[in-house]
Nucleic acid binder design. Sequence first.
DNA 1: CTCACATCCTGGATGC
DNA 2: TGCATCCAGGATGTGA
Length: 295
Amino acid sequence: MPELPEVETVRRGLAPVMEGARIVKVEVRRGDLRWPLAKDFAKRIAGATVDGLGRRAKYLIADLSSGDVLMMHLGMSGSFHIIQDAKNEKRNARPGDFHHARGKIGAHDHIVFHMSNGATVTFNDPRRFGSMKLVARAKLDREPLLSALGPEPLGNEFDAGVLAKACAGKKTSLKAALLDQRVVAGLGNIYVCEALYRARLSPKRQASTIADRKGAPNERAVALVDAIKVVLHDAIKAGGSSLRDHRQADGTLGYFQHSFRVYDREGEPCQDCKGTIKRIVQSGRSTFYCPGCQK
DNA sequence: CTCACATCCTGGATGC
DNA sequence: TGCATCCAGGATGTGA
């Protein structure tokens, strides 16, 4: 489930048990994720305190007291779960508190962090498209996984001018351009579909048509940037989207999937016109849109 | 350079 | 029920 809103939701769920706590021990149960973990991965982390847990695009970034930074990506099927120490849970439990993932390390729990506060944080990823990488903080500005990323869509620096410039001259579709992390970082298939619907722009439209000949933004670029910010903001507020029962780190379900206007709604009526939501395939991925509203 | 496409991997849904 | 097929939230490397 992991696009920007889901990763941000995971970050907010993990921060309370990780920030300020020491990683006592790391278990690498399977190190062959998207890329094999470095042989000294666990040893390099053990004993470090997590000074902060941040996010860049779809990467979680833990700042460690050792001088390293731990980059984590959820891929397609990655998730984190918190197993609370029983004593702590009893002590801290309040009525209405969220349900914590219950007790046991299970299949596909590839990486397990044992924290000094008694919490256990597991990284689960059936498809193993996720990844973890340790990088010296001093070298982070030259980290290849980050250096090519476009702007954060919720940041002030992301506006119609920036998006138009990135799309100017692009022959490819708007859909493909928005999925390109170099254009804007953090969108995935769901939120691209939803943002295009909200901006009333066709996913098939050539990307360059949100800019004039000089690369300046037109009204389409303005609408698109606005739609992207609104949909991401709303999704984060809803705790992300829970597809196929995917859960947040604290065990609760996000509910933004109920706000999908087009994603996975092929054949259903459009909420704005009399049309029907259609599914097409663009560069091998499903695109959902309303041909009536989106031009 | 830019773009379309296959590919990594597993599990769930669907169809016969 | 059993088995085959298709599809999936991402990102990269390829080949045209």
